[in-house]
Every structure is written in C-alpha cells, then in structure tokens.
Amino acid sequence: MRRPRRTDSPKIIALIIGSKRTSLAKALSLWVSRRPPYESNQVMKPIRPAPLLTTPPVPLDGPVRCPLPQSTSAPRANPASPAQPVAPFPVDIYADDVRIYLRAELPGVTPATLQIHPHAGHLTVFACAKALPSAGPTSEHVFGRLIALPDCETSATLISTDYALGILTLVLSCAKDPELRPIAIPVN
C-alpha cells in the first residue's frame, strides 16, 4: 500500500469529515501542513511567556483625572466627568540576579502626578503630561499602563524612582516564590 503523502491531505480529510466540500478540506489540509513537524524523540521545551504589556481599559485604582494646570484657578466644572483617555508608552525591562529595572518613556510628565502601584506580578504606572501653554488644559493627557513583571509572581517592592529627560527609571525587587526559588542540594 502506498504511503500517504502531504498532497493527499485534502482527500484524506474529506474522507474523514465525510464531506465533498473540498474548500473546507483544503483549508484543514493547509492548517495541518503548516504545523511544525513532530518528531517522537523531540523534547518539548518549556515556553517562557513574554512579559504581558497591555494598556488597562480602566485604571485599577479608579478613574485618573489629571489636575488642572496652575494657571487655571477655577475648579473643574463637573467633578464627575469621565476619566481622560489613557495613552500607552514604550517600556524597556532589564533584570539582574536580584532586581528588575524598568525604563519608561514619559515625556513632559509632572513628576508629582506619578502613580506607581506594584501588585501581584504586575505594576501599574500612571502619570499626567503637562498641558501645552498655548493649547490650554485640553492638551493635557494621561499616560497609563499595566506592566507584567518577568519572573515575579508576588508583589514587587519599589526601591527607587528617577525621572530625567522624560524617562522614568524604576528599580524593583521581587520576592521569589519559595517553590520557584532554586535550592542548592549538597552532594556527598
């Protein structure tokens, strides 16, 4: 008996699904052919998930509203107005044996408005960008992002914060889960 080839896939799949819809069979065949070849002696390597970097649809600690600029003395007309749209920002993450270093591009931010909240394996960063002098308070906007910390299952501890040239640098320490911590086993 002839060994089935890859070109036979549409016919085989059409037989299996009992249908004469060759387009469906071809689509399934294409999906099968694009799968990576599996070898029986292949060792499946554990996949390390990439850091999850997403923008939260809503801030975790309630809506963020940037304060009005200093030049405007009148209070906000409607304090219950919806929160300003949150803009994401680029983040670089570095690490060494004990600490996590995070560099975020946040140009034109008022350092006093920085909100950094570490929580289980994640970090939330919010900041208000200064309003343009000529564009008025409408040009003010909020930077915000939820950042997953690599290899950090517990809540990280914020060690230091530095803001210079529009770049926020955070140094964090993450207490490793006891089950994930490497244990040295003495060999006699």
């Binding site: 990439a50 850091p51 670089d92 993450i93 570095y94 270093y101």
Partner: peptide, 15 residues
C-alpha cells in the same frame, strides 16, 4: 546617549 549598565540583562524592549 544612554548606555545599558553591564550587569543589566535585557528582558523586554520597546524603545
């Protein structure tokens, strides 16, 4: 002009 400290290992980069 920013140079990564030698001890820092890159985990994720967007800039």
């Amino acid at each position: 002009e920013w140079h990564k400290p030698a001890a820092w290992a890159l985990v994720h980069r967007e800039s």
